[in-house]
Design a protein around this nucleic acid. Structure first.
Lengths: 193, 193
DNA sequence: AAAAAATACTAACAAGTGTTAGTTTTGGGA
DNA sequence: TCCCAAAACTAACACTTGTTAGTATTTTTT
């Protein structure tokens, strides 16, 4: 069992799932893109569902790990938020297909993995929410509806893959600084008011 | 042919599509939720694809219509953006299921409708982008990467349905003002810097 | 070069898909 | 009450789905 072949299958599956959605991609589609027959896939993987789990779960854990790392750092809340944004952008650029699958196809994980994933996701959101709340307490952030604020930033980050795959050339630094500026400081020129 | 029955089918389909995705919902699933057999659906609709088109196309045109209306108004850019945000929130609240289908299932429209939809969507984005660009010109908005800014706001609006269906009680006014504040003026308390 | 292991293949399965044809039931207007 | 259209039904179709069994081929190890 060649592990590289398995990785290749998963990578190819991620591309297809991102483009067409998990349910619209058949094992025969996947096999064809790899130049083999569908049945041959089963020498390397157990099921279609397993492929999706392989795509999603590691990535989900890496987000959790990063959040756990950041939240205990001795930094301002604004800097923590910046770091989270930066990490999300990095991951989106480096693992576009995997991230797209995670954020739009997780519903099709088998029940067990889906629950596991969901817990990670909920905790990530809670941690994010807590950061916002703490930022308000410390008066680093304006008073605001924490849930709405958290949602709005996470929405942008989670769908970033959509825009990134539209353009083939991305100025990573520009993207990071622009997004941080927009999400944290807004877009209205307040000097003129 | 009772037109109310057709509307009922489309509404029920929208709920299912939003929840499980177009491809994961079979005509038998849809029929069952309506208390009939799958074949009976075809007394009211021509195909599964038609249902999706009925869900999406009207809504897409209403967004285009609203944008056409707003962009020629004599208002500040900030107020135009506020109005667009407000309209998006209204629609998300009133037609949650339809909007969810539009924003996450449009890929499964038949080729013709898909192209038609795509054009509307691209034009909407272009108009939005132009508003941002004009705002910068007029110095109402800060200098920024217009594309990134436009993307970031539209992302939030497009995935709002996701959050709204999580909570059953929404303070509409609060949601509108909070989101406008966050998206346009940012979240960082700049008085303290 | 022989043996073993990995990976491809063909063929087929049971179940599920959207849809059609033909028939029965339902319900409101003459 | 009879009629007719609307809308439900049963049965079946052709096709696609994920997956398995069994076999051939290729690659690696000895």
């Amino acid at each position: 069992m060649n592990i590289n072949r398995k990785k290749q299958i998963i990578q190819t599956a991620a591309e297809l799932f991102k483009e067409n959605g998990y349910n619209a991609v058949s094992m025969r589609d996947l096999a064809e893109k790899l130049g083999i027959k569908a049945a041959s896939l089963y020498n390397h993987i157990d099921s279609k569902e397993e492929i999706l789990a392989e795509i999603i779960m590691d990535l989900a854990y890496s987000f959790t790990a990063h959040m756990d790392e950041v939240k205990h750092k001795k930094k301002s809340i604004v800097d923590k938020l910046k770091e989270i944004i930066e990490m999300y952008i990095d991951t989106t650029i480096q693992k576009t297909d995997f991230l797209a699958c995670m954020n739009k196809e997780w519903k099709y994980l088998g029940e067990q993995k889906r629950n596991e994933y969901w817990e990670l996701r909920e905790n990530y959101e809670k941690d994010f929410l807590n950061l916002v709340a703490e930022g308000i307490e410390r008066k680093e952030l304006k008073k605001c509806e924490e849930k709405i604020t958290a949602f709005s930033i996470l929405s942008t980050l989670r769908t970033l893959y959509h825009w990134i795959s539209k353009y083939d050339k991305i100025d990573e630094k520009l993207l990071k600084s622009s997004l941080q500026e927009n999400l944290l400081f807004g877009i209205v020129n307040q000097k003129n008011n």
